[in-house]
Design a protein around this nucleic acid. Structure first.
Lengths: 108, 108
DNA sequence: CTTAATGGTAAGTATTTGCTTACCGTAAGT
DNA sequence: ACTTACGGTAAGCAAATACTTACCATTAAG
């Protein structure tokens, strides 16, 4: 499974998106992430694992706290994927447009 | 549910990602999308509905065929979301970096 | 008119997966 | 040394969802 696939998988869940957005503004400890969310702390732990494996966040220990923060690798991987996807789709679209144009000219 | 959330939800499924990528190169009829995929045609129909509601694809009839193609609206919505997300995250990071710098100066 | 091709929908099943409780380990404070 | 705070993991459960088969509607072709 590619890095990008894991990232899309990870952000496919609304609770993980909430966590992801909470971390946008600042790094947070696990307990602070769980605070305010509608799920228990262990649930958050499980989500964090998924986000980390997708390289959307990174985690480092600080004393007894696990500080989580956005990892650029996963975010940029998704961005690049969508950029390239759109470029390719556009190129393919133009190509088929040209071909249908040729077909028209042939007939006339 | 915002347009972008639906899009992330939709691309959270591997089969839907396969369909999405198949349509990158050219528009296809439903039966052509199903061909080669490891799931039945009705399953594909259901996935197409989800992708369409996420504005990732558009569908138009042509005779008895339903032609599916990439919809720029959903793709660009995701791209813009990630762009803005990354910009905001970067700005927040710089802000906290400055603040910790100030803290250091205060102490020394 | 009949037949074939395309494909949407419904009902049911099965798998996935998100969540909880319970438990344990580690690190810091008293 | 005891206690408190933090947090990962396991087991079990419940809800979501992906898939299949069966059926029906529409359109084109013979």
């Amino acid at each position: 499974m590619s890095a990008c696939e894991k990232a899309f998988n990870a952000l496919g869940d609304p609770t993980r998106r909430m966590i992801f957005e909470k971390l946008r503004d600042r790094p947070l400890a696990v307990v602070d992430i769980a605070d305010g969310l509608p799920v228990s702390r262990p649930a958050v732990s499980q989500h964090l694992k998924v986000l980390r494996e997708a390289k959307l966040i990174s985690i480092h220990r600080n004393g007894t706290k696990n500080i989580c923060q956005i990892d650029r690798e996963g975010v940029l991987a998704m961005r690049n994927y969508l950029d390239k996807f759109w470029d390719d789709a556009l190129a393919a679209f133009k190509l088929t447009a040209e071909q249908t144009e040729k077909e028209k000219n042939k007939k006339s």
